[in-house]
Design a binder for these strands. Structure first.
Lengths: 209, 209
DNA sequence: GCAGTAATTAATCAAGTGTATAATTTCAGA
DNA sequence: TCTGAAATTATACACTTGATTAATTACTGC
């Protein structure tokens, strides 16, 4: 009986493969299904190898969560482009309620990880870091938008508006990703943009992309 | 060595205890921590007994999820009371963004369960049943509110408004429950009511409780 | 009080888990 | 071409998991 052949990979590549395999496992089988063996199989690798790149399974999972959130926010933020604040905010909203951000797979992974935040301090820290970035982005865009609109806006009201808008986006994202409603016939982007405009007191016409 | 003493309980009581112990385990240790032994310990019972009341661990978890959602919606709906639609909707909103509905423990359990919906058909069905109830409730209240306001409202716009409001409530609920923001100095009920009024085009004054 | 029934415990099993380590293989550099 | 070092595999271990079954206990009805 001969050993299976293999070929070496740079450290970064192997790490990425293992993280990708972890996220696939979580998406399809749940967090409980993301066993060391399952992840190794999907990465085309032997279980023992994981230990060379991640001290623990806990570290692997935390790393997977970290890159997952970072990618998610980056993808959403990439929808901003440049231009006036209205346009950038509209881009962010559009990206947040359409694939690949709004998507069943993404939601599954997100929920599985969120479910651990309360009982796992490491995951809690990873979570905190990631979400701060998105909330700050929303708050800044909201601030610019309101100032562009000419309204005088205290920092406190900007903050409150950002909280509300953030909540709306989260909620829409969940509803759409969950797939309970039949959104196939509905223009989710239009709904998201219009309700945002209403919430912020902006002229909806400026929001049409 | 003598056996530990025990006393019998009616079937319904034991089932409730086991479900409660399951939810406690999930909240504090995550879904992975809700082992048969952990649940049994918390219920003051021996692992083997679980099988007498639930065929599988899967059934136990599904039952726990079912009662969790049912209780959650019931608690929120209880905030409605009676009276004009405006008042009932305001009550629902208030209940949704304050304890015990908006609460870290509740969110943890919710997220842990949601994370399984995509990979577990049984949990998916339980989930679907539960959420339909809440969405229908919101849609009905929104419909009544808009009609009370005198606006002519097609069923389609009612539906869209309900989707958006539902999303806003979900998002606020998550933000508040997550505890990332410092909501201690902020009146979350006021924010939720005002933004709802803005969204539905209702006079905010009618929403102050 | 007493017997029978049903609930509960205790003990055990096979399977799967994360982890550890030694044996192998690949590959870069001389 | 050859050698040394690093990556990868293979194997094994201790532990936990969900599940099963027989022995024991508590309670109900007579």
């Amino acid at each position: 009986m001969t050993r299976r052949t293999f070929h070496r990979e740079p450290e970064a590549v192997r790490q990425n493969d293992l993280i990708a395999a972890t996220l696939d496992s979580v998406a399809e089988l749940g967090l409980a299904g993301a066993t060391v063996r399952e992840v190794a199989n999907r990465a085309g690798v032997t279980p023992g190898l994981i230990r060379r790149y991640f001290d623990n399974k806990e570290r692997l999972v935390a790393a997977a969560y970290r890159t997952f959130i970072a990618d998610l926010i980056e993808t959403a933020a990439a929808g901003c482009g440049d231009g006036p604040a209205h346009t950038r905010l509209a881009g962010l909203i559009r990206a947040s309620v359409t694939a690949p951000v709004a998507d069943g797979r993404t939601l599954s992974i997100w929920a599985a990880f969120i479910g651990t935040v309360n009982s796992d301090p490491v995951m809690a820290e990873v979570h905190r870091e990631g979400y701060q970035a998105f909330r700050d982005l929303v708050e800044q865009l909201v601030g610019e938008c309101l100032r562009e609109g000419g309204t005088d806006t205290s920092q406190q009201t900007i903050r409150q508006q950002a909280i509300v808008l953030n909540a709306l986006l989260d909620g829409l994202w969940i509803e759409i990703s969950m797939g309970g409603d039949d959104f196939s016939r509905v223009d989710v982007v239009r709904i998201a943009l219009d309700s945002t405009a209403t919430l912020l007191g902006i002229d909806p016409a400026e929001f049409r992309e």
